[in-house]
Design a protein around this nucleic acid. Structure first.
Lengths: 334, 334
DNA sequence: ACTACCCGCGAAACCGCTTTCACGAACTCT
DNA sequence: AGAGTTCGTGAAAGCGGTTTCGCGGGTAGT
């Protein structure tokens, strides 16, 4: 059975006894059309099962109803469930507002790269960036007038709309907690220090130390990259440098798990010998043995906030950056 | 700085001294244009930095260059990293072929639901479905002529293009392995039995028993739903029903982890008292304690296969369902 | 030389909306 | 009553491509 041809404005106009311009006015909420004519249009739409052709509308209006979600090309990105959960939050809010999510997993940053070209093409009405190492592309696109949201604090230009979690506060809380548990030598395994989240979490860790009266020695600070492998590698480094280490704050759960793997392999018991805290509260935090003490961030809400900030921009509404709170979840590892 | 207006065919045509139809022919690979004219068109494109307006092309040609990836509305969907990884595989293959992925996380199944309407709208050139409980919608859309791919074996209509993993073989191998390890009483916690993958994994488990000379009692078969919580719940049920249980095959890693959580809480040691095998080889399989023995499926390749099958259909090429192999990964839990 | 056929190419219609501009009716003011 | 203004509405242009159909030049056959 061949697909039925869908009725167009021409058919609706004929049925309702009005012009196509009037059909367009009615369906787009123009209040100036006489109520009687408007009713006839709506009845025709109902009777004929009219559905707007969004491609034609996009060409005519310059608005496509598509929002790009841009994720730096890294096949491991989705194996960290963080991004999947954020994406589903974004997708749901956009759909509720009649918009669709175009997934763009691609190298980000180059002004003349595929992402830049695509976003300038007019094919999407806005873009949500998931992680950035530089604001260059984002600043450039903002100047081009493209509505943008970043998940994470911008590096330089606070003018860019963004949503984030309280990284500083979460890291501060994690470090304070480790100290309150009696830890004398607390290390940090940072995320990719090119991201603002990693910097802020490092700052929170340092502030907790300042308030305890002394700063950690440099060798307690390891620059990871959010991956499981880097958590393992840095845990080995820390054990070599500081055999008496008794606390580790890892800037995400994956690295925390990596660290625990190495510690236990080295005969160090978690939490008896070394206490470990992660960040995210991903599912692996609760399924692991020992179950991970971690800083929980509401990842679904982060995605929803990003979607809402995008909607606000598209509607020309006022908006503020959104910083979501964190919460210490105490399980077995600390 | 206002965005520069992009050149259109009219400008290219004028610069190259040809008509717009000729520009369209050249850029779309029409070999009948005289080589000299074709060269002039390409030079003009290069000189003026022409980029095709895909929205206008979509209206004129009826092809949008967008493929919908449809995932049943379930916020937990992306916390299982399986779907994120498949999505990134699909996305990459599509992008390599000049297509874009529209993410559709929405209740699936209803013929008059949002997904059905959207897919019939002509706004996407095809759709990839991630998990289905019924072929009704898919059969209906196929009749409408929409190119489709399912990740997973269809329920009824083998005519639908699909990619899958060797579920039967993987489950068979897992169960055989448990038996070869001396397990006398092997249970199964199935996935959502409405999915064909869960059925096939159950069949593999049963076949392994048949070949060992006896079938498992009904109470060793628990119907889970792929979630961590259902793994926990069914492990409790199994312990109550069969205190002497010594082997569990869970149809995914999440449920396996849930089961292990409960077993250890009940004082049963894994693998000393009870051996556990999962399915997927998600990251949690290796990060957990004990590290999970599991059936590994190549999830990235699954996504890539789905993307490739879609490309083949769009190009009018012959294609076969793709069944990917599995591999037993032996770690600590069995 | 004439006729028939083939093929490259251009003009313009078309895809289905949005929006502009002009027209005529209704209303208001003098 | 006449002039001026306002507003609802329709015709049609436009968004930027794709594709169709017809034209004219070239070639082949008789």
């Amino acid at each position: 059975m061949a697909p039925l041809t869908r009725p167009t404005y021409a058919v609706i106009a004929k049925t309702a006894g009005v012009s196509e311009a009037t059909v367009s006015r009615v369906l787009n909420g123009d209040e100036s059309v006489h109520p009687d004519r408007a009713s006839r249009v709506r009845e025709a739409v109902e009777e004929l099962g009219y559905k707007k052709n969004r491609v034609a509308s996009a060409l005519a209006s310059g608005r496509t109803g598509l929002i790009a979600v841009v994720i730096d090309d890294d096949l491991s990105v989705f194996s960290d469930p963080f991004w999947g959960t954020v994406t589903s939050g974004v997708s749901r809010v956009l759909q509720e507002n009649g918009l669709h999510t175009v997934l763009m997993v691609s190298p980000v940053g180059a002004l003349d790269g595929g992402v830049s070209h695509y976003l300038k093409s007019g094919e999407v009405d806005g873009a949500i960036f998931f992680v950035l190492h530089s604001d260059t592309l984002v600043n450039y696109l903002k100047k081009q007038g493209l509505p943008l949201v970043i998940t994470g604090t911008p590096h330089s230009n606070a003018d860019i709309p963004f949503v984030d979690t309280d990284n500083f506060g979460g890291a501060y809380t994690a470090t304070k907690y480790l100290m309150s548990q009696g830890c004398k030598k607390v290390a940090i395994i940072t995320g990719d220090i090119g991201t603002t989240a990693a910097k802020q979490r490092l700052d929170g860790y340092l502030q907790a130390h300042r308030e305890s009266g002394h700063l950690p020695v440099k060798s307690l600070i390891c620059e990871g990259d959010y991956s499981f492998e880097s958590g393992k590698a840095h845990a080995e480094t820390l054990l070599a440098r500081h055999p008496d280490i008794d606390g580790i704050f890892a800037s995400n759960d994956l690295m925390a798990m990596g660290a625990i793997t190495v510690l236990e392999k080295a005969g160090r018991s978690v939490p008896s010998d070394v206490r470990v805290v992660g960040f995210d509260d991903a599912l692996i935090a609760q399924t692991s043995r020992p179950a991970l003490t971690t800083i929980r961030q509401d990842v679904v809400a982060l995605g929803e906030a990003a979607g809402s900030l995008m909607i606000a921009q598209l509607h020309g509404q006022e908006f503020e950056p959104i910083i979501l709170p964190t919460e210490l979840i105490i399980r077995e590892s600390a």
